[in-house]
Nucleic acid binder design. Structure first.
Length: 258
DNA sequence: GTTGAGCGTT
């Protein structure tokens, strides 16, 4: 009995959208439906959910059939404690299609002329941009969560070239301090990688694979071997950036060979 | 299992 949001927006031509804020993350449309339906005819209830986790975002949209009922619901349900939390009921300011809403009702359905577009508040640029921003903020609020790291890892793995994009994209560096943060983190990572072991206090105790050297060969060989994978593992794309200076490469090979 | 400013989907 609650197919809200399952089949998309039913009809937003003559409906008044109410924005419900400060609701618990466990509150669902089923819980809000009886509460809001008591004050008027609820046409549809939609609760935005996270794209990754699928959890409630903490706010819901309730569409009424009549404005008077919606107003009544706002006046009656605004400040009501639901699930132990005080919810905030108010008329929606923006529509699903970025349309302007007046008192919950959609005033403009489609951008007909450009002269009216100017009236639009430039506060919001795009939905995608905001999506990331919101996620980013929420992620931070949640302290260090696995989702952020996991997501980053997956995206990085999905499209490795993105790294280059980030480098060539000054927006990330300037837009938010994220670029700096990433760089910092990468620096630390590299630092750790560069120094595999501060100091082996007891190499004998350590279950090192080289517990018993296969052959008493020169350490130079081993050194090179250890350096080879290290370099590759450290930054495969870093070499590309370093390609700009082919000086050390030649030198390295020469030294190694010598 | 966690959190808390805000404006939405087929």
């Amino acid at each position: 009995m609650s197919h809200f949001g399952r089949s998309g927006p039913p009809d937003i031509s003559d409906t008044y959208s109410l924005l419900i804020l400060n609701i618990t993350f466990r509150t669902t449309a089923d819980d809000l439906f009886p509460l809001f339906d008591k004050y008027g005819k609820v046409v549809d209830i939609f609760i935005p959910k996270d794209r990754r986790t699928g959890d409630s975002r903490g706010f819901a949209f309730v569409r009424y059939k009549y404005a008077d009922e919606a107003q009544k619901a706002v006046d009656r349900l605004d400040g009501r404690v639901v699930d132990g939390r005080e919810i905030t009921v108010q008329f929606a300011k923006y529509g699903p299609n970025a349309e302007r809403i007046h008192k919950g009702r959609i005033v403009e359905s489609a951008p007909r002329s450009g002269h009216r577009s100017r009236s639009r508040s430039p506060r919001r640029r795009h939905r995608d941009d905001h999506y990331r921003d919101r996620d980013y903020r929420r992620s931070r609020s949640r302290s260090h969560n696995r989702y952020e790291r996991d997501r980053y890892r997956g995206e990085d793995r999905d499209s490795r070239r993105r790294s280059r994009s980030r480098s060539a994209s000054p927006d990330y560096s300037k837009g938010r301090g994220r670029g700096r943060y990433d760089d910092d983190r990468r620096s630390v990572s590299r630092s750790i990688s560069a120094s595999p072991a501060r100091r082996s206090p007891s190499p004998r105790k350590s279950p090192s694979p080289r517990k018993s050297p296969p052959r008493g060969e020169s350490p130079d060989r081993r050194s090179r071997d250890g350096q080879s994978p290290s370099r590759r593992s450290v930054s495969p794309r870093g070499r590309l950036a370093d390609s700009r200076s082919p000086s050390p490469q030649n030198s390295d090979v020469d030294v190694s060979f010598l």
